[in-house]
């Protein structure tokens, strides 16, 4: 399997779902419409000529200041034909939702939960989209670029009373 053959297969089958393609470092990257995402992934997995059965990587990137702001990056590997392909999904800031791959690739379960936890991407159809690395009561999604790096105000003598009053210390 090589990039051009796969691209031809993809264009024949899902021509209108492909927004853009490029090739970098010998890897084919396909920008998809998010409506067609699961259908494309399922076809890549099940077509006997392709068999991209191994979902190697799923992660999200925050391109703050760009439209669409978020991008979900998926790497699929065909162990039979020794080839890797990269699918990219742009998601707008107002509605970072995407269909879940978990029903067809069980391995996406933790990776989607991680993308939800740290980047705030919502995967519809995920069986249990909860936080995985951070505590359940955490507010915000820290891998977003607009998440503040310093959360706590530093206490000095002049402001310590005000800061300590807000802290959840055990009070006498």
């Amino acid at each position: 399997m090589d990039n051009q053959t796969l691209l031809k297969h993809l264009r024949d089958r899902f021509g209108d779902a492909i927004l853009a393609t490029d090739e970098a470092h010998g890897e084919l990257r396909v920008n998809l419409r998010r409506e067609a995402y699961v259908a494309v992934a399922q076809w890549l997995r099940d077509d006997p000529a392709l068999r991209y059965t191994f979902l190697e990587n799923l992660c999200a990137v925050d391109y703050l200041g760009r439209t669409p702001r978020f991008e979900v990056v998926v790497h699929l590997v065909s162990m039979q034909h020794i080839h890797r392909v990269c699918l990219k999904l742009g998601l707008p800031e107002a509605d970072p939702t995407l269909d879940s791959l978990t029903p067809i690739f069980p391995t996406a379960n933790y990776q989607e939960r991680e993308a939800f936890d740290l980047m705030g991407i919502r995967f519809t159809g995920h069986p249990s989209l909860t936080r995985i690395l951070l505590p359940d009561d955490w507010v915000g999604h820290p891998q977003r670029k607009d998440h503040p790096l310093v959360e706590e105000e530093i206490a000095f003598t002049f402001n310590q009373d005000r800061i300590y009053a807000q802290k959840p210390f055990a009070k006498e």
């Binding site: 970098a24 990587n57 990137v61």
Partner: peptide
């Protein structure tokens, strides 16, 4: 400007790194 993904065989399995 760009991104790259590399995977290697670490003692525990496929270790991948995606850099933007």
């Amino acid at each position: 400007v760009g991104d790259s993904y590399v995977s290697i065989e670490s003692p525990r399995g496929v270790l991948g790194c995606y850099v933007v």
